[in-house]
Design a protein around this nucleic acid. Structure first.
Lengths: 236, 236
DNA sequence: ACGCGCCAGATCGTACATTGTTTGTCGAAA
DNA sequence: TTTCGACAAACAATGTACGATCTGGCGCGT
């Protein structure tokens, strides 16, 4: 049961985003993926008729999917002027990773006080896979890294906070997948994960929370630097 | 320009939730209000046909409004089974006020470092109105209190965090409006607001952040106590 | 009392009408 | 000749109407 590709790390089983009609749900997921993965350009117009034709349905399911995406903040509406893709730019990324820096330490603190032996074993197992992979497959690393943190947050009593974390995580994961990890960042990730496991074992919630704050901060900065670099390259 | 009723404290001008069609927007607002204000019972079914008839439109705008509300978490969908009102219960309230405890101190910290003389004057003006009202009109107090905090957060660079705060605030405001403030809580609110202004003036960001954490924590606890009491009374 | 099937009601998808926006062309004035 | 503006036609969003499909409950029969 250690199949790598299984790590399509599911949301912490709280308020699932899906649940509409069969067609509507898939439409929602498809469009959402297209936005997060960057296949739909920033600020691109989302024409209902086009989307309907492209996905082989009529317009109504598309409209509902777009409203759903609007509620989640991935799409912007202008009255009588339709929908546009909300750009996932540096500001956007900065905003959500900063929120992560505030929330994740609290989630971690709770986890440290509630962690079972099995939890810790699971963390170590995933960390083993991460080190085994050693960033050879960056996609796989993304999934494993997400799984690592999911173990810590998935049972938190604050479902809202967990869900918020997950939504943000999905965006960051998609963005970071487009970049390589620098050597410094790779080392930091491995080191901090190991240290985190040690702190969980020791039951030191304060230090663990502090470490996670640094960890998320570093991750966010890393992504932002990459985005900046790419933008500079594009402009130059 | 100190008209009290004007304090329909607007969201910090960031990502406005509205923007759909004329009918659609109002429908969204109406249903949303009905949920937040408790006019629609928890878990109540939201039948599209009924809502359409009640608001004098056809079904399509209703469907879109419901999807929008789903994206924002106020409505729950079951496939082929329609929408239900997401109950605003103690768990829900606890979740969002705990997130507030994490986020608001950070917003405050920034404000303290960026506050202008006008900002401080505005805070003092609103605080004056709050003390003048002195909880005589609890609705008015809610609006003023929201305005007080909006002054601090409205220009924060992290629009996402500000928007998140606002959404949560709207819910808490609606819930707390149904209860009275205990004398102890009234005193605490006034004291903490005054102390907060003093700290802003002194430029002590750390202490201000800490105080806000306590302030939000206290507010949340207060609401939860009221909800518990009412539930107990209803069960007894 | 228990299961089976039918029927009312609601959701979901399709098609269409209406309204508002955008674009592109033509013409007049500088 | 170029530029600006009005007008018209294409286009797309929004609202309406309807048919298909699914769910749930009621009653009938055993």
């Amino acid at each position: 049961m250690a199949e790598p590709s299984e790590f399509k790390a599911k949301p912490p089983a709280g308020i699932d985003p899906i649940g509409a009609s069969s067609e509507g749900a898939s439409l929602y997921e498809l469009i959402r993926e297209d936005i997060i993965e960057g296949r739909l350009a920033a600020n691109e117009r989302l024409v209902v008729t086009d989307l309907a034709r492209r996905h082989g349905t009529s317009t109504n399911p598309v409209r509902e999917a777009l409203q759903l995406l609007r509620g989640e903040g991935f799409v912007i509406f202008a009255p009588n002027r339709g929908a546009r893709v909300r750009p996932i730019d540096q500001e956007f990324v900065r905003d959500i990773y900063e929120i992560g820096v505030l929330i994740e330490p609290a989630l971690t603190r709770w986890f440290v006080n509630m962690a079972t032996v099995e939890d810790i074993a699971e963390l170590e197992r995933i960390q083993g896979l991460i080190e085994e992979n050693n960033f050879a497959d960056t996609f796989r690393h993304s999934e494993l890294d997400t799984a690592f943190h999911t173990v810590m947050y998935q049972r938190h009593y604050n479902r809202h906070a967990a869900e918020l974390w997950w939504k943000h995580r999905e965006v960051l994961r998609a963005v970071s997948r487009r970049f390589d990890f620098t050597l410094a960042r790779r080392a930091a990730i491995l080191r901090e994960h190991r240290e985190l496991i040690a702190l969980v074992k020791a039951g030191d919630a304060d230090k663990a929370a502090e470490l996670v704050a640094r960890h998320v901060e570093g991750s966010g900065r890393h992504i932002l630097e990459h985005m900046r670099a790419r933008n500079a390259a594009r402009a130059g």
